[in-house]
Design a protein around this nucleic acid. Structure first.
Length: 985
RNA sequence: GCUCGGAUGGUGGAAUUGGUAGACACGUUGGACUUAAAAUCCAAUGACCAUUGCGGUCGUGCGGGUUCAAGUCCCGCUCCGAGUACCA
């Protein structure tokens, strides 16, 4: 009987949809003691309009294999899926077409679901979530409210309700308060607090809340009237339209994630994540220990604060650099320097932060004319501004020590600023000296002769004594901006009374997105929600009403910004845990208690520092406030690598005839040939020169020797090219109207060859391969196994459709094992020792591989197993039954079908996983590689019982050894029993 | 720039973590079956040299080092990918 994968797969997919064998049980649904829980989660997809390509399911297949494996191992597995359905692309599409993003999102989700269903995932779809669903974002808004109503107690290292802070203010003011807050908080007493107006109190509280309003810099594009992501800016102008972009301050919601910096850092220790990923997060959090130092400004009341990790080099300060955006710049600049400074600020406003960080070769800066006073030597220090200092980084100012920091060194050299040397016996004429280990401080008054460590503590001690600074731990992690000037995101449950934010009570949530006419910002630059006519909050009736009713008495304007993409994805893992009470709670205590957190999380490494840090932050916050028990969301995490596409590039000849542009494409073979021979195209061959004359109508060609610059590579759809890189010319002409009249210069055999390039799979590069087409042609089981077979899960690898046949053939061979010709047939007799050895070898290796997430090697192991069993003509139930279970996580459809044929009616997905029996695996001999000076010359089979000397004796006795030695006596014989023998000399 | 990865045959990759480099596939070549094709099966396949056979040299991005033994460990580079705070 042939392996009819199509009917098998659709049969089982229907059955699974009906019987729901993958439905996870809530603890109370067990009659007896609940099974142990296991939670396997994928990073949920953004449902884009392009649909899934073969790269997307890679991680889902891996997690599905693991989830199915854990079911066989007796766990109650939670393996859900959903959609991160708020996002920019849907909004962009809405702007272009006027269609409501909810509508297009719905369509895209439907397509995603169809595609996912064809791959045979064991998702529990009853638990699906969508971040754009009001019933979901009701709880995102709720978490926002809780953050607003919380502050961070730095002494207890924990978030607490803001009421507790208010009580403390009332009792003793804020001087003794240990709480994370804005930089500029002034001190007040209990009496002061009581005397403040409600508005003043509210303003102060906003400086402590875990989500707060603050002025933040954004990329403002005046022409588009909107804020752009760094991503949307290419070469300093907007990607869409090429308009200028500038940095601008804007009042926005921020999240006080910096309060959690230390705990986010410490928490990494207990996580089962890769070291590289943890290292990324550590670097992102960027803890550094040093000192905060105050520099007085000459003839000015203000001081400049800097953070430095090297207070030991403080006597090496020869200038200071402020970020051009630093708030003091305007105030301290002298009249003579005003013009230059302003011009410079204007220039830097055009550069993105990333440009400024990346560009180290270009040294720019301007002297402000002002001087600071060195806190220890009282020397005047010139104050410069330079764009290598970022406003958002530390205090936005640095004390420049050119002898110890390369960037300061370069800056000083470029502007001819002195470079005082504060290191003993170190040459700093060429470069700064960054080394700390062997360094002794010199030319530094009371620090002379000390090593770096001693000098740091001594310098801090002195600075503290004179009130010019103190020891400080600094984090690179900044508070996260939480406002987006977009339509398609969660609305803030916030309205404004007298310019101050007020929360909508939780019982009135969700606050649903209003209808707007257009999804663009308003003419005066307000976010799209500014276009809504019904977007005001009636505090009496607790409902959204028309803007015209705003009276600032009981009816107030609502917030116009929406939340960013990471809001909904920072807590979704907890939502999946809940089933019945989704209206009442974000997740019930019972569910949270049972499922706890994610045991295995799989997704792309591009989320290493964004999503994964934010989700950890929210989890810690929810924990602090007692809503959940766990402190970390994801116990174990695996990154899947990207699957790359193989683009097809067709070469267009840059040939301009006198009358018009010609549309001529040249076979890549001909181009390569000519380049290699350093020849003219026309000389290539008779057939080619004839084609050239035909296509150019005998026009004179004044061409140079061929080089690649004479051609423009264009991406053509990979479906128009076969595996031998040959273009289907007729299909190409029909592909797009501009190619209908195209002409071609082909090889002698009339073939037109394109070149291939491996790059990111994307619609714009026409190199996308759809999983549903693969399922159609080869089946989901083949797709699943092939995706795993491609290589290690965490590595990027190119997709090559041609390779599918290998895996497909394997499944056919597997099918054949259970059949005799057209007939299903297995034997109930005892299997051979050999076959049992094959089986148990396979169980051992595959189990180990699953635990190690080495899925590619387990597919090879299955192939070896089936090859061996075929060779052995093994048809025994004793072997084939466990084999079906073993392979079920990888190829579930064929496994279910075989299981049924084997006479079972209850489905395979909860069958117990086979156990290895070591007795079948015992070896008594080893094929030893016999090496001479490290080079393997021959192998020798020896019993594993032999001692070292017995092995040596056997090797020496072998005539091949004598031949290799050629009469010499080896200096040394290394014998590693069970491994190798090496003869030296 | 900074941070984190990666580099092994024509291709994807394997190698029990220092012990037979190239498992398993794809591709290619040759053969069987067939009127033919497809499908299937068998054989060969890192490069070079030698060949009647035996065999030999080189070889895991590049340059050094440690070791009886290095794809694996150490030092110094090159190139490619990802992230870099408003793409998701």
């Amino acid at each position: 009987m042939a392996y009819k994968f199509q009917s098998i797969e659709s049969k089982w997919q229907k059955k699974w949809a009906k019987d729901k064998p993958f439905k996870a049980k809530q603890p109370h649904q067990f009659k007896d003691k609940p099974k142990p829980p296991f939670y396997v989660l994928d990073m949920f997809p953004y449902p884009s309009g392009a649909g899934l390509h073969v790269g997307h399911p890679l991680g889902y297949i891996a997690s599905d294999i693991y989830a199915r494996y854990k079911r066989h191992k007796g766990f109650n597995v939670l393996h859900p899926q959903g959609y991160d359905s708020f996002g920019l692309p849907a909004e962009q599409y809405a702007i272009q077409t006027g269609q409501h993003p909810a509508k297009t999102t719905e369509v895209n989700i439907k397509r995603y679901r169809e595609q996912l269903d064809k791959i045979g995932f064991s998702f529990d779809w009853d638990r699906e979530v969508r971040t754009s669903d009001p019933n979901y974002y009701k709880w995102t808004q709720w978490i926002f409210s809780e953050l607003f109503q919380s502050y961070y107690d730095t002494k207890d290292q924990q978030a607490k309700p803001i009421d507790q802070l208010v009580a403390q203010f009332q009792a003793e003011g804020n001087s003794l308060v240990n709480a994370a807050c804005d930089d500029e908080v002034s001190h007040f007493s209990a009496e002061d607090w009581k005397a403040f107006t409600a508005k003043e109190q509210e303003q102060i509280l906003l400086q402590y809340r875990l989500t707060y309003l603050a002025e933040t810099e954004v990329n403002w594009c005046p022409a588009l009237g909107t804020v752009l992501a760094n991503d949307e800016i290419v070469n300093g102008v907007s990607e869409r339209g090429g308009h200028p972009v500038m940095r601008k301050k804007m009042k926005q919601w921020s999240m006080r994630i910096s309060a959690y910096a230390e705990r986010l850092l410490q928490g990494l220790e207990q996580l089962d994540w890769t070291d590289s990923l943890k290292e990324s997060q550590r670097n992102w959090i960027g803890k550094s220990v040093g000192a905060q130092v105050k520099f007085k400004i000459k003839a000015h009341p203000d001081t400049i604060e800097v953070f430095t990790t090297r207070p030991d080099t403080i006597f090496g300060v020869s200038f200071m650099t402020l970020a051009p955006e630093h708030e003091l710049v305007q105030q301290i600049t002298t009249p003579e320097q005003k013009e230059a400074v302003e011009a410079y600020i204007k220039e830097t406003a055009k550069r993105s932060e990333r440009d400024r960080m990346a560009d180290v070769k270009h040294i720019t800066g301007v002297f402000t004319g002002a001087y600071a006073e060195h806190p220890l030597s009282q020397e005047p220090i010139p104050i410069w501004i330079g764009d290598y200092v970022l406003a958002s980084y530390g205090t936005g100012a640095v004390m420049a020590v050119p002898c110890g920091d390369q960037r300061d060194f370069d800056f000083a050299q470029h502007f001819d600023i002195p470079i005082p040397n504060v290191f003993q016996d170190v040459d700093i004429s060429e470069a700064a000296h960054g080394d700390k280990d062997q360094t002794i401080i010199a030319n530094s008054d009371f620090l002379n002769g000390l090593n770096v460590k001693q000098a740091i503590s001594k310098a801090i001690e002195r600075l503290e004594k004179i009130g010019a600074g103190q020891a400080k731990v600094n984090y690179r992690l900044r508070d996260a901006v939480f406002s987006r000037q977009r339509y398609w995101g969660e609305p803030f449950p916030v309205y404004y009374v007298d310019g101050l934010p007020k929360l909508i009570d939780v019982e009135h949530l969700p606050l649903k997105l209003p209808e707007v006419e257009k999804y663009l910002p308003t003419e005066d630059g307000a976010p799209p929600l500014g276009r809504a006519d019904v977007w005001a909050w009636d505090t009496k009736n607790n409902q959204v009403v028309e803007n015209t009713k705003i009276d600032h008495q009981t009816i107030f304007p609502l917030e116009l910004n929406t939340m960013p993409g990471w809001a909904g994805s920072s807590w979704y893992l907890f939502r999946y845990m809940e089933t019945e009470q989704r209206d009442e709670v974000f997740a019930s205590a019972e569910a949270l208690e049972y499922w706890k957190n994610v045991d295995l999380y799989i997704g792309g490494s591009e989320h290493a520092t964004g999503h994964l840090l934010y989700a950890r932050f929210w989890t810690k916050f929810l924990h602090d406030r007692g809503f959940i028990q766990v402190e970390e969301p994801f116990k174990k995490l695996i990154n899947q690598g990207m699957i790359l596409g193989e683009s097809a590039l067709l070469y267009r000849w840059n040939y301009n005839s006198s009358d018009k542009d010609k549309n001529i494409y040249v076979s890549k073979c001909i181009i390569d040939d000519c380049i290699r021979k350093e020849d003219y195209l026309i000389n290539h061959s008779d057939t080619v020169s004839k084609q050239i004359y035909d296509t150019t109508q005998n026009e004179m060609i004044t061409s140079t020797k061929v080089s690649l610059s004479h051609f423009t590579p264009i991406h053509v759809d990979v479906s128009l090219v076969n595996t031998s890189n040959e273009l289907d010319i007729e299909a190409f002409k029909k592909w797009r109207p501009e190619f209908a009249e195209a002409q071609f210069i082909k090889n002698e055999d009339a073939k037109l060859i394109v070149s291939r390039e491996v790059e990111k799979m994307s619609k714009s590069k026409f190199n996308v391969v759809n999983p549903d087409e693969i399922c159609e042609q080869y089946g989901a089981d083949t797709l699943r196994m092939y995706e795993m077979f491609l290589g290690p899960i965490d590595q990027a690898k190119p997709w090559n459709t041609a390779g599918l046949s290998g895996v497909h053939n394997f499944l056919k061979k597997l099918w054949k094992l259970y059949h005799n010709g057209e007939q299903f047939e297995v034997s109930n007799q005892t299997a051979s020792k050999e076959s049992l050895k094959t089986l148990h070898k396979t169980i051992k290796k595959v189990t180990q591989d699953i635990e190690d997430f080495s899925f590619n090697t387990s597919v090879s192991t299955f192939m070896i197993c089936v090859n061996e069993l075929t060779q052995q003509k093994c048809q025994h139930r004793e072997v084939l039954e466990p084999l079906a279970i073993l392979i079920a996580p990888y190829a579930p459809h064929i496994a279910e079908e075989l299981w049924e044929l084997l006479g079972h009616s209850n489905g395979i997905s909860h069958e117990a996983y086979p156990q290895v029996e070591e007795k079948y695996l015992v070896e008594d001999t080893k094929t030893y590689p016999i090496s001479f000076n490290g080079k393997m010359r021959f192998t020798l089979d020896l019993s594993l019982d032999l001692s070292k000397s017995e092995i040596e004796e056997a090797v020496m006795k072998d005539e091949r050894t004598q031949k290799q030695l050629n009469g010499r006596t080896p200096k040394k014989v290394i014998v590693v029993p069970g491994k190798i023998v090496n003869l030296v000399g």
